[in-house]
């Protein structure tokens, strides 16, 4: 019977998330294909920046990108293509978006994956510590420091680190993910890669930790102030048991949601950090494509991001449903 409720709930959630996905795709299609081409008159032939193009050539280019068919057909083809892994062809290089994405994905996933993991771990743990030490000098000092660092723009932080550690102290390299040329020995290669990754990782973690720490601190404080904690203490349970069996189980739903929302960022990258450190990743690519009006690329990457967000949230739904009985039995 419990499972039945769970299944029904999850089915409902799945339908919800799917609806969100569909709406997002439609919006994306409208904004990135209908608007520029049909409304603003910008199309792929345009950005060749060559006024010498004949109309004939322009037509050919339009046809190559499927812009000559009726809108609803285009939309259907577009959605079908997306789900079969065909993300279209870049206007700029005319190569498949998927291929170009694959080139840049490893760099982004490694950097952002590590930084997200560290940021979440450090941030959430720090928040817990702060909640436990609420009101002490440690708490107030750290909040001040967090807010301060959180308000640094990422590029400023990145350039600062680059200037101090890369230029003045010369401890770290100034650009790229490997030395030019990279060492051939695989172990040395990994070491070289990690050495290059240190500063961008530091930038991302420093910039992100404060926010998560404050967030999780609030979540913990809220839970720790709840009545059932007083009951638990009255029952004679020790602090550790209270923390683990009572507080933690109750903070899981919001924390899981936070984690789920942080996950899609691993693929979509961090454009500013990638630019400052010349890190060959998806974030920077998305930014360049946007300024170059390379719509298929923007569409493709956004689609991946939307898909990941929806899937992450759905997984969060599942986990929360298992953990929190209120959600599935009500």
């Amino acid at each position: 019977m419990v499972l039945d409720g769970l299944a029904k709930y999850l089915l409902r959630r799945a339908a919800d998330r799917a609806a969100v996905l569909f709406v997002a795709l439609t919006l994306q299609f409208a904004l990135l294909r209908v608007l520029p081409y049909y409304v603003l008159g910008i199309d792929p032939s345009f950005f060749f920046m060559n006024p010498n193009l004949t109309n004939e050539q322009r037509e050919l280019i339009r046809r190559a990108f499927g812009l000559d068919e009726p809108l609803h057909v285009q939309f259907a083809k577009y959605v079908l293509a997306l789900f079969t892994g065909n993300l279209g062809y870049s206007f700029y290089t005319r190569r498949p978006v998927m291929a170009e994405l694959a080139e840049r994905l490893p760099n982004t996933v490694i950097l952002l994956g590590t930084s997200t993991l560290l940021t979440l771990l450090i941030g959430l743990t720090l928040g817990l510590l702060l909640a436990m030490k609420r009101g002490t000098r440690f708490d107030t000092t750290f909040i001040g420091v967090s807010v301060l660092i959180n308000s640094f723009p990422t590029f400023y932080l990145g350039l600062l680190l680059l200037l101090v550690f890369g230029f003045y102290l010369k401890w770290f390299p100034l650009a790229g993910s490997v030395s030019r040329p990279p060492p051939s020995d695989p172990v040395l290669y990994i070491a070289d890669y990690l050495w290059h990754m240190t500063l961008p990782l530091l930038t991302l973690v420093t910039a992100g930790v404060g926010g998560y720490a404050l967030l999780s601190r609030n979540i913990f404080i809220t839970q720790m102030g709840e009545d059932y904690i007083v009951t638990a203490r009255a029952k004679g349970l020790d602090e550790r048991t209270i923390m683990v069996k009572h507080v933690l189980r109750n903070v899981l739903p919001p924390v899981i949601t936070i984690v789920a929302l942080a996950l899609p960022g691993i693929v979509s990258g961090a454009v500013i950090t990638e630019t400052v450190f010349s890190w060959y990743g998806v974030g920077r690519w998305l930014f360049e494509a946007s300024t170059q009006f390379d719509y298929p690329v923007v569409q493709g990457v956004l689609f991946i991001e939307i898909l990941l967000t929806v899937v992450s949230l759905y997984i969060a739904d599942i986990v929360i449903a298992i953990v929190d009985p209120r959600v599935r039995l009500r």
Partner: peptide
Amino acid sequence: IFQGSMSALNPVM
């Protein structure tokens, strides 16, 4: 014994 409000007992146990 506390007031039996919702939050006197751990909601997820």
